[in-house]
């Protein structure tokens, strides 16, 4: 098992955001997390990454069998976990190209020109990181940066939100390629576009539905996605749970 999240309970400033999460992701698997706003999707990703304001109250996180629960985020990153932020912060004065070369030398890796071309980030290299970027530029750049060190587990937090359709297509293509290349993916998304593309290619292994800090249902995409788009989260979850019980 690449990632094993066991009964994880997490608080942010005393507020409980995750209430006992169990999640196992194998090598090369693609997991999608869906759910309404404030369900805890981003908190789950942030907790796995080890961001500082997410305090683990109970449970643990294992990565390649090793307990990483108390480890700082940079150690987790170096072990092969990467998080693509939903909204990365602009960093004035830090040039993209300088940041890219800092990452390359830190991970002793080389640039993936193919991914760079697909995400069309070359023209942004002389800019300051995320400063004045459009929605699409920001997402494409953040995905590019996330993938630079060739992570074993790429966690993508709504890589398609607030983005023009051209950028969505590019991002979807890149995620498909990652899946084909056996990078494990944990993807948070709301929109059908990326999902349908991944479903068409048969890339998605499991879909998890989250609500109120819990994973309330997990299953295969064909079972879940059509219901979610037809009925919305709340009703879809009720129907799925009813079906589950009847079985």
């Amino acid at each position: 098992m690449l990632l094993d999240v066991v009964n994880l309970v997490v608080e942010v400033r005393g507020r409980r955001v995750l209430k006992g999460i169990n999640l196992r992701i194998g090598k090369g698997e693609v997991h999608v997390i869906m759910g309404p706003n404030a369900a805890g999707k981003s908190s789950l990703l942030a907790s796995i990454m080890g961001l500082r304001k997410y305090h683990v109250v109970e449970g643990k996180i294992l990565f390649e069998g090793e307990d990483i629960t108390g480890r700082p985020s940079y150690e987790r990153a170096l072990k092969g976990i990467a998080l693509s932020y939903q909204i990365p912060p602009p960093i004035k004065g830090l040039k993209v190209k300088d940041f890219v070369s800092a990452i390359l030398s830190k991970y002793k890796c080389s640039v993936d020109y193919f991914i760079g071309k697909m995400l069309e980030v070359d023209y942004l290299m002389d800019r300051y990181l995320f400063v004045g970027f459009s929605g699409g530029e920001r997402k494409r750049m953040e995905l590019y940066i996330t993938l630079l060190p060739h992570p074993k587990l790429a966690m993508l937090d709504e890589p398609d939100s607030g983005v023009d359709i051209d950028s969505i297509n590019k991002i979807a293509d890149v995620i498909s390629i990652l899946a084909e290349n056996k990078t494990s993916i944990l993807l948070v998304t709301h929109t059908g576009h990326i999902l349908s593309r991944l479903v068409d290619k048969g890339s998605i292994d499991v879909v998890h539905l989250m609500m109120n800090g819990k994973i309330v249902f997990s299953g295969i995409p064909d079972e879940i996605i059509p219901l979610v788009f037809k009925y919305g989260y709340k009703e879809a979850i009720e129907k799925l749970q009813r079906l589950d019980k009847n079985e």
């Binding site: 990454m49 500082r52 700082p72 940079y74 990153a77 990365p88 912060p89 960093i91 830190k106 940066i145």
Partner: peptide, 14 residues
Amino acid sequence: AEEEIEYLMSKGFT
């Protein structure tokens, strides 16, 4: 900004 430090740390920097 704390969030800038946090972001860079999550990318592998101390």
